[in-house]
């Protein structure tokens, strides 16, 4: 491993440690008690915990132990892969996360791939024409500015209610016996709106990156040379320019991939999509420590892993980085 990579790895390890400790401490600092949240709230039935039950429950969840011991148990659990038992969902955190993470992954990956493909296609073409920049820039910036949940709620009304093309919530039809292709279509149908929203918000920044990168590369002497040689335009565009221009895009893709999983929370909440984002949101609302820790950990590990992979990939593609 090169020095550069080693340094990155050390940083990520540090990040991981900080995240793990924050992860433990922050939920416990939130005012409120998870056991109280079980049945509180306006209009709910009054469940009066008698002191004995409360004590028994606290000891079951280990909430009566000193903080340090709770921390030790938490670390032990991390090492053995036991993330505890969700208080509000009444299920092991592991299984909850395993159930939910693929859905988040589906949303993020498909929206990113979609938006990047579109960005590369359109970005290389538009970079040809250098004048009238603002005509491209203004709408691009506008669509980038619309917050994802705003766009999502408008699309929800337009394409889910007014023109009922898409389901309003969920990741697949409940109780459908669809199999094979139909099942895939059903999932795609449910994911369509969230993916559309997420890809719209990442499309324009990707598009801008591609465009500026292509513009920069097409001024390089070797591209001019190729043009002088009389090579056909598409060959120049895709083989000469795009290859080099894609390099900054890889980092950009990596960063996006790392952070968009967390960024999808709002969209998952809006579309009632069963991803980790919605899980973390609900865990916050019910002060469910074990679940919060688990979900937060998933996001942290995801970000670190993707960032590290991006670093490695970038290095193998661009030899200049090794010299740093």
């Amino acid at each position: 491993m090169s020095r550069h990579l080693q340094r990155r790895a050390a940083t990520y390890l540090l990040v991981f440690l900080v995240a793990v400790s924050l992860n433990f401490l922050l939920p416990r600092a939130i005012p409120g008690n998870p056991l109280e949240e079980l049945s509180s709230g306006l209009g709910n039935l009054p469940i009066q915990l008698d002191p004995e039950t409360l004590k028994a429950l606290q000891s079951y969840y280990g909430l009566d132990r000193p903080l340090l011991e709770q921390f030790r148990r938490y670390l032990e659990g991390l090492v053995t892969g036991q993330l505890g038992y969700s208080i509000s969902y009444r299920a092991p955190v592991n299984s909850l996360l395993l159930q939910r993470f693929p859905w988040t992954l589906l949303l993020t990956l498909s929206s990113l791939v979609l938006s990047f493909c579109a960005a590369v296609l359109l970005g290389t073409r538009s970079a040809k024409r250098r004048n009238g920049e603002w005509r491209v820039l203004l709408p691009a910036v506008f669509f980038e500015s619309v917050p994802s949940f705003v766009l999502g709620s408008l699309l929800l009304v337009l394409l889910g209610v007014k023109l009922p093309l898409f389901p309003l919530s969920g990741a697949y039809s409940a109780f459908s016996d669809a199999e094979g292709v139909w099942q895939v279509l059903d999932i795609a149908h449910h994911a369509a709106l969230p993916v559309l929203v997420l890809s719209t918000s990442s499309f324009f920044s990707a598009y801008l990156v591609v465009r500026s990168s292509v513009l920069l590369v097409s001024q390089e002497p070797y591209v001019l040379m190729a043009a002088l040689k009389g090579l056909p335009e598409p060959i120049i565009r895709y083989r000469y320019v795009l290859r080099t221009a894609l390099l900054p895009l890889i980092t950009f893709f990596g960063v996006r991939l790392a952070y968009s999983a967390g960024g999808a929370i709002l969209i998952e909440v809006l579309f009632a999509y069963p991803g980790v984002g919605r899980l973390i949101y609900e865990a916050v609302l019910s002060h469910d420590y074990p679940l919060l820790q688990g979900a937060f950990l998933v996001f942290t590990v995801w970000i670190i892993a993707v960032n590290f992979l991006t670093d490695c990939l970038y290095m193998s593609l661009d030899p200049r980085v090794k010299e740093v």
């Binding site: 940083t11 990040v15 995240a19 939920p27 939130i30 929370i265 709002l266 916050v284 995801w302």
Partner: peptide, 24 residues
């Protein structure tokens, strides 16, 4: 810069949500 690296690698939106709740 290490501090910056650490802060930038923390999942942002989940962190904002967590902190917002934690701080009332």
């Amino acid at each position: 810069m290490r501090l910056v690296d650490v802060l930038m690698a923390i999942p942002r939106l989940p962190m904002i949500i967590l902190l917002a709740v934690f701080l009332r």
